[in-house]
Structures are given as C-alpha cells and as structure tokens.
Design a protein around this nucleic acid. Structure first.
Lengths: 110, 110
DNA sequence: TATATTTATCGTAATATTGCAATAAAATGA
DNA sequence: TCATTTTATTGCAATATTACGATAAATATA
C-alpha cells in the first residue's frame, strides 16, 4: 500500500501523470517561469530567485530534468538549464485535445 | 520542514501547481480520459473502469473536484461527474503560452 | 597545490499521498 | 420500515515528497 499502481495504467496515462507531477509544485512552476523570463537561459542564479535553500532547488531541478521538462549543459563550474520543448509540447497537446473534445460535446449534464 | 512553502510563491504559480497536482496521478488521468470517452457524462461506473477499490476512486474523484477539474451533480443515489471546462482551459492556456514563448526564443543554449 | 565557486548528494525530520477494509450516509424501492 | 444501491468517510499502514544542514564533487583560478 501507499505506492502508485503504475502498472495498471496505460503508457500515455503514466506519461501525462509524470509530466503533470513535475509541474505539481509552485517552486517548479516558478523555475519554468524564470527560465522563460531570462533571455540567455541562465544558470544557477535560479537559487537566488527562489525562497528555498540550494539543496532544495537542486532537487527540484533534478525532478524537472528527470521528467524531461528541462535539460542542462555544463558550462565551467556552472550549469545552464533550459526548457525542453518536446515535453512542453506533449503536455500542451494533451490539454488542447481535452479542450477541443469538450467544445464538441458541450456538457450535457452538471 | 516537509510542507510546501506555498506562501512564498505567486497566486498564479500556486494555481498552476494545484491543477498540475490534480493531474499528477495516472488514475486521475484515466478518470479524465473516461469522462471524455463517454457520451453522457456518466456516473459511478468509473469504479468499474479503474483497477482500484471504491474508496480509492472516491478519493481521487474528490481531489479532482477540489482542484476544480471536475464537478458533480447528484442524481438519485448516484452522482454524475463531468469535466469542468474552466479549469482545463486555464491549464491549457498556461502550457500554450509556454509553447508560444519557446517558439519565439528558439533555444539559445543546451 | 591550495582556495574559491558552483552544483550534487547524503542523511534525516516533517509532512503528504496512496490504497484499502470497515463503516457510515443518503436515496430508492419493496 | 427494511433491504438495496451508491457514494463518502474513517482509520491505518506503506510509501513518497519536501526541505535543509552538512558535505562531497567538479572545475576554475591564484
């Protein structure tokens, strides 16, 4: 008990849940916001932007990276993180599909 | 320690995180998929569709409802759940904005 | 080589989530 | 009223997440 029953759901359902989970924390949303706001996809001053300690930020970055939402490349002692378009596109299209689907149906009840 | 530091982030960041969190479990993605697949936004046979016990499904439905992603109306002994367009629209637009933003920038590094 | 800078990892405490059996609550029909 | 049906709630165990201090690892520079 306690662990998610991943094996009972489709690959797509698990994939969407994984992407959503990566965005399921305000600090990680803030990281994405910040990466969008800077011109050069700047590095570890993300820590200075967030009200969290460096290890905590590092952990959030790791989760975003593992979900495929950001990617990082080493640049000397610092690391340059930026958003991975593919993952964003995948989740964007998922919600777009739902939106379109809802428009066609036009809620029968509720 | 341990609890999310909600108060340090913007309302928008918290709102997006909350919606994403609601979708951060494959069972809840499956519920949305099912609600989209049925013509009449049918009720509690969601339990039969999912590989989870009734109390677990009820709990997932509650979380989706509290996040505003679904709404339910009582119909005799059963309850009719369906997707709330507004919440879907909000999260859809968020990811669309990111997508558009990324298209303009066209990744400088990484 | 020693030091500073930057990021990652470890260890741990606090809290949250997931899942289900048991049970309650609410409405219907006999 | 009493059983049936449907959904919600309670209580609890297992697991996951969040946060951070301490520390390690990696690279650059003096």
């Amino acid at each position: 008990m306690g662990a998610t029953k991943t094996e009972h759901f489709t690959d797509k359902q698990n994939a969407i849940a994984k992407l959503a989970k990566a965005m399921a924390h305000p600090a990680r949303v803030a990281i994405i916001d910040y990466l969008l706001s800077v011109d050069t996809c700047i590095c570890g001053d993300i820590v200075n932007e967030l009200p969290l300690a460096q290890p905590t930020v590092s952990q959030h970055l790791k989760e975003l990276k593992e979900a495929g939402i950001i990617k990082g490349s080493i640049d000397g002692t610092s690391i340059c993180y930026c958003i991975d378009e593919l993952a964003i596109l995948e989740i964007q299209k998922y919600f777009e599909e739902i939106s379109n689907n809802l428009n066609i149906k036009k809620n029968i009840c509720c």
